[in-house]
Amino acid sequence: MITVNLEPDGKVLELHDIRSVVGLLNKLGMRHTMAIIARGGELLTPDRKLSHGDVVLVRKVTSAG
């Protein structure tokens, strides 16, 4: 399981069976340039692996006004 902090929504999701950043983006229905993904203060490219227990920031980049 990984924990996802979604910004700017302020939601926290717990997702299972996610093994990579691209898998996470697909799960969230996002193209890879729609959000920045970070773990422990490090930005991640879509090919990076995710592990059980990871806490990941997903910050959408489109300003909403």
Partner: peptide
């Protein structure tokens, strides 16, 4: 990063 409370449905988005 909070959206403007008046900006819902802006066409540019």
């Amino acid at each position: 990063s909070d959206p403007c409370p008046y900006a819902s449905g802006a066409s540019f988005t």
